[in-house]
């Protein structure tokens, strides 16, 4: 078994008093790719924020590579964990290269000058995200799918071992959703990156991830393979509604088939 990238036990986290996470356990091994699913308000994004070091845990333990997450200095943590936040436009006309190069901050610091390895890492990140040809373009001129790749490339420039993504396929056209999911899969398979992906899309997650975790009201409801988690009883528990599930005719992985008001069951 590969060592644990993340070891989370009994995690409680809160905004302004009310616990959003109420005892979450998660053991994520290096090289795994996991999709985090659940209804709005279930705590998916909150968990991601705790793991990225943006929100302190109120209770419980969060270990990154065997060490308490809070014991890491911010820049030290940023060399291990890259975050792709939820899609947001950037109103400032930076070039693609400049935005991706900011991913080197954990190495360069406030006053240092970027060296040869920093430029190499930025070039590699641009290539891995398939946007090397966009490097001179302004981010204000990009399509949603292109901009999402810039955000991913910026996180890759950190040379992280764990990549956290918050709904990277939301607000994208169908083809770009598949593109981004395939990119995450490739980074996981070829670069050995551990990937934790918050998603709304059950089918995309089932198709591209080998492990799915479902949250509801701040608790883990299901954690396992698509075959174990994408089932009618599990979905009923998470969403309070009956959904038909059928194997994909292409991959055989379970897919949620939408039908009218559950009368097909």
């Amino acid at each position: 078994m590969s060592p644990l990238m993340l070891d989370v036990r009994g995690l409680h986290a809160a905004y302004d008093g009310a616990d959003v996470l109420q005892g979450v356990d998660l053991a994520l091994r290096t090289g795994e790719m996991i999709s985090l699913l659940g209804p709005n308000g279930s705590g998916k994004s909150t968990l991601l924020r705790v793991l990225a070091g943006l929100l302190p845990a109120r209770l419980g333990k969060v270990q990154l590579l065997g060490r308490d997450l809070r014991a890491y200095a911010p820049r030290e943590r940023a060399r291990l964990v890259g975050l792709v936040p939820q899609y947001a436009t950037l109103p400032f006309a930076f070039s693609v290269y400049d935005v991706v190069a900011m991913g080197r901050h954990p190495y360069v610091g406030l006053l240092g000058a970027p060296g040869a390895h920093d430029r190499e890492a930025v070039g590699l990140a641009l290539e891995m995200a398939d946007i090397a040809h966009l490097r001179e373009r302004l981010v204000t001129e990009l399509s949603g799918g292109e901009f999402q790749r810039v955000l991913i490339a910026r996180a890759l420039a950190q040379e992280p071992r764990l990549l956290l993504l918050d709904e990277p396929t939301a607000h994208l056209d169908l083809n770009h959703q598949v593109d981004i999911a395939a990119l995450m899969r490739r980074l996981n398979g070829e670069q050995g990156l551990t990937v934790l992906w918050v998603s709304h899309d059950m089918n995309l997650s089932s198709e591209y991830c080998d492990r799915l975790m479902m949250l509801k009201e701040g608790r883990v409801i299901a954690d396992g393979s698509p075959a174990e988690t994408v089932t009618t009883p599990q979905l009923r528990e998470v969403y309070g509604m009956d959904f038909a599930v059928a194997p994909s005719p292409v991959s055989g992985r379970p897919q949620v088939v939408l039908s009218r008001g559950g009368d097909s069951l």
Binding site: L54, G82, L83, L90, F94, H105, L110, R154, Q158
Partner: peptide, 23 residues
């Protein structure tokens, strides 16, 4: 001049800046 990098990072949004190791 000392603050040019933090200012650039902040333009990416506070969460992103924090995830890149900025306090």
């Amino acid at each position: 001049l000392v603050a040019v990098r933090p200012m650039n990072l902040l333009l990416l949004g506070e969460d992103t800046a924090a995830s890149l190791g900025l306090d």
